[in-house]
Design a protein around this nucleic acid. Structure first.
Lengths: 190, 190
DNA sequence: AAAATTCTACCGACCGGACGTTAGGGAAAC
DNA sequence: GTTTCCCTAACGTCCGGTCGGTAGAATTTT
């Protein structure tokens, strides 16, 4: 694929992940692509738009993944397990993008910021609904839905901070650990 | 206290929290202090040193807090509960500083970065030792110590991201929720 | 106790450089 | 022959940091 726009995107992801959005200059990106920095502007209107397009695409894919993972079952506990695993998998498989999506929101204009936050809220609501449904049905113990959802999500999200693809544990192993940890936390048998 | 150095520090914390380290200029800080930007350099050698001094102080206080909270008991489970609560409390009470400490590491020189990471590692090791001891004694079920420690820490740390001091729940209530969630996750009765 | 010196805290002006972005041109593809 | 894609060159702005200086408090010398 000789698609320069795609190259710019992936080089940006790499650099934003490694050095951060503000510390990455347009020259850095152009350099990584082997072109001049002015040429970037043929594909993206601004640095901020480049960031936004990365974040938007990532958030959309994330939500799609989650929805697909829920389709397999009607059981709340099974759905929660599937959701957690989907969440973990996505964040570790696409570690760099999700890391950026969670750390570089400040680089966005306020309109773009609003759009991303809204997408994130929709995503969170799916988890909150699962928690709510689970505690209604007595599968999970009752607790503060919002706090619990934040707990679950940030727990996995943070995985993107320290995960090393060639580390001791595979993505599936980590997903299983989190799955067990979270389900037992939700059941709160203690 | 008419200490300008202290004022600069607290204004910086405020701005770094609100806008981020890179998006905050020395002029912004000086403005917030009611002085000229050149005067900042009378108190701090550079912008980076200002950031470093905030992070170092925060990390030292954090570790002190944790150690103090452990002194009260010999029981592993009670110590873990105390540790979690100390961790949560600190992160919510000093939300702005801890948020910065977890998001602005990239602003540091590599030597300063190394120092902060080392402090964080020492802090984490205390939790890892507790998990290890607990699973040795059969209080907790066996699991990957590192992953579990990351899970516990990032869970609470992330609280500093969304916590609103005047929100529905008090710090103690949130600490109690996390305490229960984590302990049951560690016991893994599921 | 007065004079001389040093120190503290700050200011206004400025510098070099980096950065995001734009203008305009040229070659090649369609 | 128009569109696509990338180039060279430059522009304006902002930022971290420096410099020389000043007013006054504190300290030392005489």
């Amino acid at each position: 694929m000789n698609n320069m726009k795609e190259t710019i995107r992936s080089v940006s992801v790499e650099l934003f992940f490694k050095k951060g959005y503000f510390a990455t200059s347009i020259s850095d990106i152009a350099n990584g692509c082997g072109i001049q920095k002015a040429s970037i502007y043929h594909h993206y209107a601004s640095k901020e738009e480049l960031l936004f397009s990365i974040l938007k695409g990532t958030m959309d894919d994330l939500t799609d993944c989650l929805k697909a993972s829920l389709a397999g079952s009607d059981d709340v506990e099974q759905q929660m397990r599937a959701a957690v695993r989907s969440h973990v998998r996505f964040h570790l498989e696409r570690q760099k993008e999700t890391f950026i999506a969670n750390s570089e929101l400040r680089g966005l204009t306020s309109e773009h910021h609003k759009i991303i936050v809204q997408k994130r809220n929709e995503y969170e609501r799916i988890f909150q609904n699962l928690i709510h449904e689970g505690s209604e049905k007595g599968v999970f113990s009752r607790g503060d839905v919002k706090i619990l959802s934040y707990a679950i999500l940030t727990l996995c999200t943070a995985g993107a901070t320290w995960f090393k693809p060639d580390g001791r544990l595979s993505i599936e192993e980590i997903a299983a650990i989190y799955d067990g940890f979270i389900i037992s936390g939700l059941k709160q048998s203690v």
